[in-house]
Design a protein around this nucleic acid. Structure first.
Length: 489
RNA sequence: GGCCUCUUCGUCUAAUGGUUAGGACAGCGGCUUUUCAAGCCGUUAACAGGGGUUCAAUUCCCCUAGAGGCUACCA
């Protein structure tokens, strides 16, 4: 059977790195087995729904190339659309179905109307917790007859609908990642499935929608493991075949707590905005909790899809290690086709200079130093300044005397002056010429090359002098050397 | 508190009933060298603890500890 999986986030915030991983695993699983990957939005918590949440989730997934083939999506104009035969895919649009399912459960005597006030229940719960027992619904509504309930509803009393869970016995099920898991019904509370607002809770909506949409495998965070029995109860109540479950290990903050938005910037949009490449992020996130082999770190999205194996997903939570993301990202930037790199790097710099060749040479020169895209700007900044601030740098090597620096720079200036523009652009040619000069004068590398490099960069740390010459080109290089010479006067 | 899940270097992980417990990031050291990166080479560092089972356990079982999750009319 063709597997059908879904990523079902709720738009209570922006897509974060944990959501991205869940979505990615869904997508990889679907691709690996030739199945469908569906995006469903679970927006039943109206109060917590944030403006632009759905757009953000879709756009972030799109940016990362994690594309569902069914369900909610965003078009090129940024408009939310739905596609597929099992819609609607936005949960609040399905509330009539949820309502009907809940009523059916009530008819089957597997759910009941409950008129207890939240305040009273909270107090009860507190007492139960204090005395060390599992908090369970302990009101009288469970035993209300259908007629009594209907009467009170007709009178306008507020109510919720609760599952009528067994109070004894055990439930056992298989999890693809964790194997056999067992729970006692006695510790399980009669879950609310319809809130007093009339909207369903996650437990009912998600379960019914999964069934209605033909979902075969549910991949979700480990935090759902304890409520799986309730979901299974619903499947059983309707006589439906439940999907297979795979509870993914959680992503952790540096303090080992469940990854949350409060700690650090874990939103995908934010991470991308910081200059991480989507390919690097996908690669990174895929390996948080799963590893296809022992000795490789870099995988394309397609390779991941070919190798993905749910059964090999780890059980333990994974801490998000941003240093490794940095390393991966730097590697992806180095591996970018030159044109792609230039296109992206060009967006990072601000300068009036419109000598495209010069700009590209500068961008290419600093590429190996770029960890995140915006690094390009600081790394190339000195190239584009009218004047460098030579007060901030020692133009001499170690304790080199001023007249010696001047002597070196003058000779270097003449050498560049006499060189052909095409030669200045070639690192090897200039290196040869300058080394020859050094040799003929019996100078040292350090006392000659440091002043040159410092003159060209105005910095203690920079790429090498030959590379700088090649990036500047003859005219610009001469201006810098002259400036340095003037500064020494 | 109760229930559930988890536990290999600091971090992400691999492997195995018998291995020098492998790789990667970070760290450290070196090479290169005019500086800083990059690159290359090398290196520190782990089977949570205690009992079993077994000729043999990091691997299987039990207990303990620790961590995390759940315990909402949130998902």
């Amino acid at each position: 059977m063709k597997p059908r999986v879904r990523f079902a986030p709720s738009p209570t915030g922006f897509l974060h790195i944990g959501g991205l991983r869940s979505a990615l695993y869904d997508e990889l699983f679907a691709r690996r087995h030739g199945g469908d990957f569906i995006l469903r939005i679970e927006d039943t918590d109206v109060a917590r729904t944030v403006q632009g949440g759905i757009e953000n989730i879709c756009q972030s997934l799109k940016d990362c190339g994690v594309i569902p083939n069914e369900g909610v999506w965003i078009d090129a104009k940024g408009k939310i659309i739905e596609r597929g035969d099992y819609g609607p895919y936005i949960q609040t649009k399905r509330q009539a179905k949820h309502r009907a399912y809940a009523e059916e459960l009530v008819k089957k005597n597997l759910a009941y109307y409950c008129f207890c006030s939240p305040e009273r229940l909270a107090k009860l719960r507190e007492e139960q917790t204090k005395s060390g027992v599992a908090p369970r619904y302990a009101g009288q509504c469970r035993e209300l007859s259908h007629e009594q309930a209907a009467e009170r509803v007709a009178k306008g009393e507020k109510y919720v609908i609760r599952l009528k869970l067994p109070s004894t016995g055990k439930i056992k099920f298989q999890d693809i990642i964790r194997g056999a898991v067992e729970f006692d019904w006695s510790a399980m509370d009669d879950q609310v499935i319809i809130k007093s607002s009339g909207l369903p809770t996650y437990h009912l909506a998600s379960t019914c929608d999964d069934h209605d949409m033909g979902i075969t495998h549910v991949l979700r965070g480990e935090e759902w493991l304890p409520s799986t029995p309730k979901h299974l109860f619903i499947y059983q109540a309707f006589g439906w075949k439940p999907p297979e479950f795979a509870h993914l290990p959680l992503l952790l903050n540096a303090d080992h707590s469940k990854l949350s938005k409060r700690q650090g910037d874990v939103s995908v949009a934010e991470i991308l905005a910081k200059g991480y490449l989507p390919e690097a992020l996908v690669n990174f996130v895929a390996l948080l909790g799963w590893n296809p082999t022992a000795d490789r770190e870099i995988y394309t999205h397609d390779e991941l899809a070919k190798m993905f194996d749910l059964a090999k997903v780890n059980k333990a939570g994974a801490m998000v290690n941003y240093e490794k993301l940095d390393w991966l990202n730097a590697g992806y930037i180095k591996a970018l086709p030159e044109d792609d790199y230039l296109t992206q790097a060009q967006t990072q710099i601000k300068t009036e200079i419109n000598d495209a060749n010069f700009l590209d040479r500068c961008l290419l020169l600093v590429r190996d130093r770029v960890v995140k895209l915006p690094d390009v700007a600081v790394l190339t900044e000195f190239f584009f300044k009218d004047k460098l601030d030579y007060d901030k740098v020692s133009l001499g090597w170690k304790k080199q005397a001023k007249d010696e620096i001047v002597l070196r720079l003058k000779a270097l200036k003449d050498l560049v002056q006499d060189a052909k523009e095409a030669d200045v652009l070639k690192v090897e040619v200039m290196e040869k010429k300058i080394k020859k000069l050094i040799e003929s004068q019996s100078w040292g590398n350090g006392d000659t090359l440091w002043p040159l490099r410092a003159a060209l960069s105005g910095a203690e740390k920079s790429p090498g002098p030959f590379e700088l010459l090649a990036a500047y080109g003859k005219e610009r290089a001469l201006v810098r050397i002259n400036d340095a010479l003037n500064h020494l006067k």
